[in-house]
Amino acid sequence: MMSENKSNKSQKSNSRYIRYLLLVSAALWVLWPISIMVEEGFRVDIGPLFSGRGASFVGEFFQGQGGIKFSPIEYQKALRIEAYPRLLVNSVIIAVSSVLVAILAGLPAGFTLALYKFRGKAFITYALLAMRTISPFAVLLPFFLIYGRLGLFDTYGGMAFVYLIINLPIITMMMRGFFKDIPKEIFEAAFMSGASDSYILRKVALPLALPGLAAAAVFAFVGTWNEFFYALFLTGAVTKTVSRGVWSGFSESIESFKILEFDELNAGGTLAIIPAILLSLAVQRYLARGVTLGAAE
């Protein structure tokens, strides 16, 4: 009996160690690439530790001359006022205004989708799902042509509108989910009290779903912040966003496309993901709802 107990115990602690080993290796898998990016942004490269020189094994491609000497120069360059801060302002203006419009439109729509059954409900849900999933190329050319004609190319308004493609489905469907989370009798009691839909939305639904609205807005903001494709084609010198700047250089003008130094890319990437990661961690409970629009619940 005794020995059996003992072996059971040691087996248990063994499996605990294995579990921790797996957890830590999974955490390494997640964090290692990021930490390399951060350090390479500081021009730190562990290669020379072994060889005194960086190894170039990627075809013919030029390798950054790394060293183990820590240098904040790339971050300093990126943080000059005309570089990252300027693009950050652009990204924030575009994302915030787009998310606000999405909230104005999506909040009442999410309310209606959550509380009512009606003809056309499937169409709207499907359209929002398609909007979220569509390849940007399927709408890019018309946007390109129309924006050229209307002078919306490289404008804040134009970008905010394009990003409704990302933000409207997120806000509408996430809010629909948050309204669904409220017991339906609360809404029924409000209906029976004679309250109009807009009164219920303002006085009952919204106050109860306010934390949800904040989460949806943050999630949508991060989605817009990270978006690269529309920014690549529809922004220019004026409205260039951070995520586009990562690739084409924070302070470079759009026209003079030059191949970036690798350290510069890494410093830029680091600065671009910091806000996104912090914001996403704040809403991590709702990430799955955000990504799948609540379909996976």
Partner: peptide
């Protein structure tokens, strides 16, 4: 920790996993 990558911009992932960074080392 595990959900962090969802927040990373896809274009940055391209940089993160580029030959020069991960595989260089």
């Amino acid at each position: 920790i595990f959900v962090i990558p969802i927040a990373v911009a896809p274009i940055v992932t391209g940089v993160l996993w580029s030959p020069n960074s991960f595989f260089d080392d």
